[in-house]
Design a protein around this nucleic acid. Structure first.
Lengths: 327, 327
DNA sequence: CTGTTAGCGCATTCAC
DNA sequence: GTGAATGCGCTAACAG
């Protein structure tokens, strides 16, 4: 591999001149610029990214840290991040947090292999994140609350979402409403549940514990919980699934048992994932402003880069998307 | 940020000693090892990844290059890659190819910011890939054929897939079969189409050009093409969608028009994406061995690293997954 | 406008 | 075992 020295030599100039020419610094005459460029071309010169980063102590890329690269994927969220990072001339890479504190993600965080990070990965410990964040290394977390001056938060108002989902069901005349939750340690799910409980209470509807099941946000668990609900005989009027994936599992369980949605039972999900409108019936759900969450997260990082004052905490509101799974 | 020099100084040893201690090279006495470790701890020492990479000229990570980080995502494929890379002690990052030859992905490729790459991104030009691949930098391409000694290929037998999809439809008694293709420049789609045509021919079924539509592998295009097909009045007996996403769009178009699947028309997809079995009706489709493609791709890279001889080209077979969208 | 020079932080000889 | 010295490839003063 040719280095910048080779290029300089071939072009008959000093290394620095070659560097300036190659980096578009306007200090070189047109003639030498051409010479350098041509030499680089002939040598198939490619700069060594690490050497460059090392020197600049800046990578121009930010990392998105995901629990698992193989999904589930929030494409809208990523699109939001992506658009803002590209608009700012930054690169974006995604790292997996598989392996937890011993993962690729942790390495990138600790060794500062990027200029900033957005994390959405429960399996990275708070300590790692706190230890990594500092004035020159902003990190925004999407999945927890961390008390640290250099950590930014963006979250959606899950309580409000749980509330409007339940209100909608009640408004439509449903009295007995089941709730299929996410995993126990999910703060998001817990807040949605709180919203559900409070809405129930406000309308003097009693909560029945046999109508609460614990899932794990996966399709399969929605399927299983629903099967159990069906097996229990007397079905509720409606089910509020803590996310769309589980609602999809539920839909399948109902189809398996010849139970029609929404004729026999109404269901509502949470998230409004892309596929939801293509289901049969199209799923009524609570839309999370995922694109906005992503875009905002990235924005905050760039604001910090430019030394602006930024709000450390944002909470975004959800909205009801009415389709056909609630009658 | 403390550097290794600071650590060495604090521990009262030479830099090299500190380096050995930190990297677990068994050349240091237990006593000094402890001293160094403790000094590092006290200073919150974190090695600079770039400096390390620069020196080693090795990053221990491989890149997965995707057209767009925001999906559509082949989670099975990524899982395959992920498992093999982790098993080999390597890190995996995903880069977006948005921006084509001016993207993050291109930068990682050209500047060799990783040790190897797997590319699944039509929007990166052949030239870039060819220019990047060399004996020390293996790249496996999943979406094209490239004539270069250092480029490896893994593909699925799309021709065979197109063939069995069509055969299945014919076997079930369908005579007029429409084909909704992927984008024009997609080699995959082209091969599926060839399989379709040949199967038709073998059974003396004439191909009707009014039953061929060009889509772009996106849900929306499946929806639009299907709408057009419906508008044309007399529907075919069955439709072969070049991928599941478009079939989902098709399903929606039929639902919109009160046309029942499979009672009124049969449809078959291609890919067997996760959601397919949850659709209504569950989608009959051609399963691509995605996990295997991913795992194999990663394997090939590691084989190359260890200097083994590797087959430059693999073609994996597809299989029919019968569900309920074909009657 | 161009060339010289000094590190960036680290791993790695090679003597001791 | 240890430590001094060297350079990876590049950028950025600083002189000229």
């Amino acid at each position: 591999m040719a280095t910048i020295k080779d290029v300089a030599k071939r072009a008959g100039v000093a290394v620095s001149t070659a560097s300036y020419a190659l980096n578009g610094v306007k200090k070189v005459s047109d003639a030498t610029l051409q010479k350098v460029l041509q030499a680089a071309e002939e040598l198939h010169y490619q700069k060594n990214g690490f050497a460059s980063d090392l020197k600049r102590t800046k990578t121009n890329t930010i990392a998105l840290i995901l629990r698992d690269l193989s999904g589930p994927f929030y494409s809208e969220l990523i699109r939001g991040i992506q658009e803002v990072t590209t608009a700012n001339g930054y690169d974006l890479i995604a790292c997996s947090a598989i392996g937890g504190d011993d993962s690729t993600a942790t390495k990138f965080l600790k060794e500062k292999r990027v200029d900033g990070a957005i994390v959405l990965a429960h399996n990275i410990s708070d300590d790692i994140i706190k230890a990594s964040a500092n004035a020159d290394f902003p990190v925004v977390v999407l999945d927890r609350h961390l008390d640290n001056p250099h950590i930014l938060h963006v979250e959606v108002d899950n309580y409000q979402g749980g509330w409007i989902a339940t209100e909608h069901l009640i408004e439509k005349g449903h009295k007995s409403i089941a709730f299929i939750s996410g995993p126990k340690n999910s703060h998001d799910s817990e807040m949605r549940y709180k919203g559900y409980r409070d809405a129930l209470e406000k309308h003097n509807l009693t909560f029945q514990s046999r109508f609460k099941f614990t899932g794990d946000f996966q399709r399969e668990s929605g399927y299983r919980s629903t099967k159990m609900l069906i097996a229990q005989q007397n079905l509720p009027d409606a089910i509020f699934y803590a996310n769309d994936e589980m609602a999809i599992g539920g839909l399948k369980a109902f189809a398996d048992n010849g139970i029609r949605v929404p004729e026999d039972i109404s269901i509502i999900g949470f998230d409004d994932i892309q596929i939801s409108e293509y289901l049969n019936p199209p799923l009524t759900t609570i839309r999370q402003p995922k694109y906005e969450v992503g875009a905002l997260s990235a924005h905050m990082i760039f604001q910090l880069f430019t030394g602006e004052d930024v709000e450390k905490h944002y909470s975004l509101v959800t909205e009801l998307v009415e389709r056909e799974s609630v009658k």
